[in-house]
């Protein structure tokens, strides 16, 4: 069961419209290394974790990633707020307007729709956790690229926060993988 909390994990209040940046941020919404893929991947993998520690960790990180989907959507929404059709066209978002108006729709930065094939599940705890560690590193790298693309502190702060979260998740997955590997040897 999931229950919604009416707040963001970290506050976001972007005042400056920036459509080109909004387009880039889509990568972390519906892109291959994005938050949506991460969340679904962990929430699927948890069913086949070997014990309570794994089931808990995958549930808890998968749930946090849903909160990150919300943060990314919030950033895109606020960056696009009040954009005119001309501005959208100039930023390469004409297609986005034609299909979705100002609504949110999970695609990558080039407009390719989200697909569940971005997620991996093998049923093997070690393979799944290694895959998650790699996923967290890819997401960290993507956040660094996004931080390279902006000087707006209203955007940089939440991006820096999200980047740190990938570092923590990587560490926790690595710890769990090491625990399982040690115990499997016995």
């Amino acid at each position: 069961m999931f229950a919604y909390q009416k707040r963001l994990q970290y506050p976001i209040d972007i005042k400056k419209k920036d459509l080109k940046l909004a387009k880039c941020l889509l990568s972390q919404y519906g892109g291959p290394y994005g938050e949506l893929a991460a969340s679904l991947q962990y929430l699927n993998q948890r069913f086949s974790m070997p014990d309570g520690r794994g089931k808990a960790l995958l549930t808890d990180i998968g749930t946090e990633e849903l909160g990150h989907v919300e943060m990314i959507c919030t950033m895109i929404y606020q960056l696009m707020k009040g954009a005119t059709i001309e501005e959208l066209k100039a930023a390469g978002l004409g297609g986005q307007y034609a299909q979705n108006d100002h609504a949110l729709y999970p695609t990558d930065a080039s407009g390719v729709p989200f697909t569940i094939t971005y997620t991996q599940t093998t049923g093997d705890a070690i393979a799944d956790l290694e895959s998650n560690m790699a996923g967290e590193q890819r997401a960290r790298a993507t956040y660094e690229h996004l931080m390279d693309l902006t000087d707006d502190p209203d955007v940089l702060q939440p991006l820096a926060f999200l980047r740190q979260r990938e570092i923590i998740h990587y560490q926790r997955f690595k710890e769990l993988k090491n625990i399982y590997q040690k115990e499997l040897k016995k």
């Binding site: 970290y10 956040y143 702060q157 980047r163 570092i167």
Partner: peptide, 13 residues
């Protein structure tokens, strides 16, 4: 575990 990137100083709103 804390590592900053590009010297972005943490500061919340």
């Amino acid at each position: 575990l804390y590592k900053s990137y590009k010297g972005v100083k943490p500061k919340i709103l």
